[in-house]
Design a protein around this nucleic acid. Structure first.
Lengths: 271, 271
DNA sequence: AATTGTGAACGTATTCACAGCG
DNA sequence: CGCTGTGAATACGTTCACAATT
C-alpha cells in the first residue's frame, strides 16, 4: 500500500524499492535464470535493451528498476548475467527457502500443492491444512493434510513464514487469523473478499473472477460505442449469428446478484 | 497499459475509466451483490464510508471511483444499492454472459474448470482444449476436452470471447496465437512468461510464483536490516518458536537458476 | 561506439478538504 | 447535519533524453 518498500544495505545504494519494481524484478530474475542453461553458449552479459524486450518492458524502465539495486551494469557493454542474477536474487530473498503452509485442499488447493512454481523457486510446502474431516489425513503432494486447528502449533514449530489460502471465501478470514496467530506475516489469498489482518502482515490477493471481470469490461467496451464505426469489426465473426451477433450473449442475461451460491467444490465460493 | 480506458455513453458523464478504478468496481460489485440477500432486512442505501470499509479502501477513493460512472449518490444519504449495483454491473459488462474457452487441463486447468467464480458471475465455459492426446475426449465439468487444433473453428462458431490459458509456459504463446486467430481478444494467462499478442488483444497475467516472490521479498526485508550481516542469517524470532526458530531456512539454500525444470504436471512450467 | 545511470518531464493514482446539496 | 462530488495537492510510476563511462 505504501508503494515504497524499505530496506537498508550495508555498503552503497539501495534504500527503498518501489512495489512496482519488486514485481518486475521477479520477472527479470526468471528470465535471467532461464538464460543460464538455455543458451548453449556462455553468454555472460546482457544489455538492458535485450533483457527489457524479453520481459516486455521498455529499457529505460528496466534500467531504472535495476538502479535501485545499485550499480551493476557496465557502460557500453551491459550487465553481467551472473552478477545481476545474484543481485536480484539476493534482493528478492530468493536465496532462502521459504516455508509455505497451504490451507484449503479443494480443487484449487490441490492444484497449487502440485504446482511446480511453488516447489521450483525456493518455496517449500511444509504443511497442508483443511477443515473438512474427510480430507484430514489424506496425502497430497507428499504431505498429509492436517486439521486447520493444528495450524498454529504446526506452523510455529516448522517455521512456516508464508501462508496460502485456497479455501472458500467464508473460511478465509478465520484461516487468516489462525495463520497470523501462528506467526505468519505473508499471506497469498485466493479466496474472494477482503482479509483483515494486522498492519505488519503482507497480503497479496489473487482473485480469479476479478480478473475475468476486468477482461469483460474491456470486452464490453469493444462492442459498445458504435456511434461511428470505429471498430472495423475485423477478423473474428464468422457466421457468428443472425443479426450482428455480438461476441457476448445478450439473451443469456446474468443476474446482477450472484446466482446460485452453489459451492460446486471447495476452492472459493461466491463470485 | 494506457491506464485509462475509454467508452462513450449516450447521455451524460462517463467518458473514460482508469484501470485501477475498473478493478475496484468489480470489488464493489461483489460486495453489493452479496448485500442483497445476505441482509434479511431491506437495506436500500449504503454510504460511501460503509461500502469503502467493506471493500478495504478509503471513502474518498470510492467516491471518486463511482463518480466515473455518473452521479448516482444522494447527498446526505448515500447510494441506492439497487441503482448502484445496476450501474456498476452495466459498466463492467456484467449483464452479458461471456463465453470462455479454457486451454490446458492439467491440475490448475481442471480446478479452474470447476471454479464457481467462473460460472457464477456470468462467465460461461464454452469449450475446453488441450494438446495431450490422452486428455482429448475426457469430460471435465460437463465439457468434453477438444484438441487445441480445433480451437479456431470451435471458438469462432461458438462465439468465445475470452480465453484462459492454463498450459505449461512452453505452450502458452502458441495457444495465445490460436486464440487470437479464433477472434479472442481477451486472454487470462496463468502460464509464466510474456505473451506477445496484437495491440488490440487484452491480456491479464496471473503469475503465482511471482506473487510468492513478492511476498518473499517482504519477508526478507522483515529480517534484513542488519548493520553488516552479509548472509541475512538469524531473523529475530518472534514470540515464534521455542528456540530461535527462524522464519526462513538458511540451510536449504536455493539455487539461483531454476532447478529441475521437471514438468511435474501440466499447469505451468519453470518458475 | 555502445550502453548505462539518472535528472527532469510527464502522466496516472491517491488523498485531502470542503463546497454543495438533499 | 450528513454525505456526496470534486478541484487542488500530493504521491507514485513511467518515459525521455543525454551526459558519463567503459
Amino acid at each position: 500500500m505504501t508503494g515504497q518498500v524499505g530496506g537498508t544495505r550495508e555498503s552503497g545504494r539501495a534504500r527503498t524499492i518501489p512495489e512496482a519494481t519488486v514485481a518486475r524484478l521477479a520477472v527479470y530474475l526468471r528470465i535471467l535464470s532461464g538464460l543460464g542453461d538455455r543458451q548453449g553458449e556462455r553468454e555472460s552479459t546482457i544489455s538492458s535493451d535485450e533483457l527489457a524486450r524479453s520481459a516486455g518492458v521498455n529499457s529505460a524502465k528496466l534500467r531504472k528498476d535495476l538502479s535501485f539495486l545499485g550499480t551493476y551494469g557496465i557502460r557500453g557493454v551491459g550487465y553481467d548475467v551472473g552478477t545481476l542474477t545474484e543481485e536480484i536474487s539476493r534482493t528478492l530473498g530468493a536465496h532462502r527457502a521459504h516455508r509455505v503452509a497451504l490451507v484449503g485442499l479443494g480443487n484449487l488447493g490441490q492444484a497449487l500443492a502440485g504446482y511446480p512454481g511453488f516447489a521450483g523457486r525456493g518455496f517449500v510446502i511444509s504443511a497442508l491444512f483443511d477443515a473438512d474431516p474427510g480430507r484430514i489425513g489424506v496425502e497430497v503432494a507428499g504431505h498429509r493434510i492436517q486439521h486447520i486447528d493444528d495450524a498454529i502449533a504446526v506452523c510455529r514449530s516448522s517455521g512456516v513464514t508464508i501462508g496460502v489460502i485456497a479455501t472458500p471465501a467464508s473460511a478465509a478470514q478465520e484461516v487468516a487469523e489462525a495463520l497470523v496467530a501462528a506467526g505468519v506475516r505473508s499471506i497469498l489469498n485466493f479466496a474472494p473478499g477482503i482479509l483483515t489482518v494486522p498492519d505488519d502482515v503482507e497480503v497479496r490477493h489473487v482473485d480469479l473472477s476479478l480478473e475475468l471481470q476486468i477482461l469483460a469490461f474491456h470486452e464490453s467496451r469493444r462492442v459498445a460505442d458504435l456511434p461511428d464505426g470505429t471498430r472495423p469489426e475485423p477478423p473474428r465473426s464468422e457466421p457468428l449469428g443472425p443479426d450482428g451477433l455480438r461476441s457476448a450473449e445478450p439473451s443469456a442475461r446474468v443476474a446482477t446478484a450472484f446466482p446460485t451460491k452453489s459451492i460446486t467444490e471447495a476452492v472459493a465460493v461466491r463470485s
